[in-house]
Structure formats: structure tokens, C-alpha cells
């Protein structure tokens, strides 16, 4: 039976990658990051995650016990909001791609 085409997505929008949108890429300097998670709160694409993996540098012992922000580069679109909001200037936007 003929039915109409309907614009619903049967796959999660997580399948939509944003990495091709970027011209600049945020990089976190964990040695100065105070784990305030302001970047996590401001990222418009939920592309910053919490990680308790350890293995990241830290400014002092006390902060080593806190979870660290980790950028999901598949979904980061390179807008730079995190770098703009970081109170410690711990995020820098690096040129990406091209020559």
C-alpha cells in the first residue's frame, strides 16, 4: 500500500557528526584546569563530558580527585564558546585541517 514520506528520524541524532563543521578545535590544558565544569555547562552541543578515568594532569593534588572535562570531538562543532567561558584560560582554539 502506498503511504506518504514522513520526516521522522529512526536513528539517534548522536549519529549526526559535527566534526566536519570545525575550522578550529578546542584543546584543554589540564595542568591549569580547575575542574569548575563551566565549559561543560556552556557547550551548546553537549560535546563536553565528565571523566573520572584519571590520567589527566591537574594543577594540585586536591583537584586530582575531581572529574575532568573531556571533549567529544565527534560532536564538537568548534564554536569556541568553551574557550571563551573558561575562567582559567585553560582552553585554546587550535587551527585544524587545511594547509
Amino acid at each position: 500500500m502506498k503511504v506518504v514520506l514522513v520526516p521522522v528520524a529512526e536513528v539517534s541524532s548522536r549519529e549526526n557528526r559535527m566534526d566536519s563543521w570545525r575550522t578550529q578545535k578546542p584543546a584543554i590544558d589540564y595542568s591549569t584546569c580547575i575542574r569548575c565544569m563551566i565549559c561543560w555547562k556552556f557547550c551548546p552541543d553537549n560535546a563536553i563530558m565528565y571523566s573520572d578515568d584519571g590520567g589527566y594532569q591537574f594543577p594540585n593534588e586536591r583537584l586530582s580527585k575531581l572529574e575532568a572535562p573531556v571533549i567529544d570531538y565527534e560532536h564538537c562543532k568548534g564554536c569556541g564558546i568553551c574557550a571563551n567561558e573558561c575562567p582559567e584560560g585553560s582552553i585554546t582554539m587550535e587551527m585544524e585541517g587545511g594547509e
Binding site: 514520506l5 520526516p7 521522522v8
Partner: peptide, 17 residues
């Protein structure tokens, strides 16, 4: 669960819809 109001690139199904 399905996505409503999702987006479509130029190569997506936009024109067909």
C-alpha cells in the same frame, strides 16, 4: 522513540520529502 523536527543536509531526504 523517534526524532521529530530533525535536520537534513542537502544530500539528505529534504527534497524527496
Amino acid at each position: 522513540p523517534m526524532g521529530y523536527g530533525s535536520y537534513s543536509t542537502p544530500d539528505g531526504p529534504f527534497m524527496e520529502l
